[in-house]
Design a protein around this nucleic acid. Structure first.
Lengths: 135, 135
DNA sequence: AGAAACTTGACTATTTTAGTCGGGTATATA
DNA sequence: TATATACCCGACTAAAATAGTCAAGTTTCT
C-alpha cells in the first residue's frame, strides 16, 4: 500500500505555507526551493488544490498562493480528496454491491476493505493542517 | 493509496480455507475455482504464505495446503507481512532518520506518515482471520 | 517594457502491478 | 509401477500507474 508523491507533496507544501504564517501570497518557487520539490510538479498539484478551494491564487509579479482557510480548520482529508487520493481496494468498490472480482455476490472479504477504508479516512478526518506545525 | 491484489487474494484464499473448516488439505485448484483467482497466481501467493509459516503444504495427489494456526489466532497483519505489504510513504521510511526527499533533516510531515503507518497496522493487528468468517 | 509568477495541455521515462509460461518434483492410488 | 494430481519456482511480459518534464501561454507588479 503506498501513498503517492502528489499527496505527500501537497501536504508538505501546505504545511510549509502554514508554518510561515505569512500575510501575503507565497510563491511556488519559494516552496519549491525550501521543500525540494520540482516547480512544475508543484504547479500541477496546486492546480488541483485551487480547484478544490484549498488555496487561492494571486497572479503576476509578487503573486503566489494563500491558504483559503486557517490551518486549524483544514482537515487533511480535504487535501487527499482534492488529489483524488483515497483507499482503493479495487474491484471491491465501496458502496458497490456487485464487483468483487467479477463475481455476482459480495466477495468474502468485501466488508473488510470497507472497514479499512473507513479506518484510514478517520485518520485524515481527524487531522488538521495545524497539527503538523505545532509540534 | 491502493492495496495490491496479492494481499487481497491472500486474505480471500485464507478466508476461503478457514470457512471450510476442513480437516485435510485444500488444493489451490479448488480455491482457484471458488474464488476466481488464477491458479498460477495463487501458487506465487502461497509460496510466500508457506515461507512465513502461515500455511503448510502437502505435496502429491490429494495434497494441498492447511492453515498452520487456528483462524482465531491468525492476525491479518501476519498475512500482509508475508506479502511484504505495508504502508510505504516512500522517502520517509519508518525508523529512518534521514531520507525525506533527499534532505538531511526530517521533513515537515515525517511524523505524520509514521502515525499513519501505525494507525493502519493497528487495524490489521486487531483483526483475526476468524473475524472474516463469523459474520 | 520586462520580469515574476500563475495556467494548462501534452508528452515521456520509469516503475510497479498483475499476472502468464514452462518446466520441474513429490506422492497417492489404481 | 504408471499416471494423474498437486505443489514448486524462476523467468518473463503486457498494461497501468507514477512521477515527473516540456512548451507555450496569460496576468500583473514595478
Amino acid at each position: 500500500m503506498r501513498l503517492n508523491t502528489k499527496s505527500r507533496y501537497a501536504v508538505m507544501a501546505l504545511a510549509d505555507m502554514a508554518s510561515l504564517r505569512a500575510i501575503g501570497p507565497i510563491s511556488l518557487r519559494d516552496i519549491s526551493l525550501r521543500q525540494g520539490i520540482s516547480l512544475q510538479y508543484l504547479e500541477q498539484i496546486f492546480l488541483k488544490l485551487k480547484q478544490h478551494n484549498i488555496v487561492k491564487s494571486i497572479r503576476g509579479s509578487n503573486g503566489g498562493y494563500i491558504l483559503s482557510k486557517h490551518p486549524n480548520n483544514l482537515k487533511l482529508s480535504e487535501i487527499f480528496l482534492a488529489l483524488n487520493e483515497s483507499v482503493k481496494t479495487i474491484g471491491c468498490e465501496r458502496d458497490s454491491k456487485k464487483g468483487c472480482n467479477g463475481r455476482s455476490a459480495k466477495c468474502i472479504t468485501h466488508n473488510l476493505w470497507d472497514e479499512l477504508d473507513l479506518h484510514i479516512n478517520d485518520f485524515f478526518e481527524n487531522k488538521k493542517l495545524e497539527d503538523l506545525i505545532t509540534n
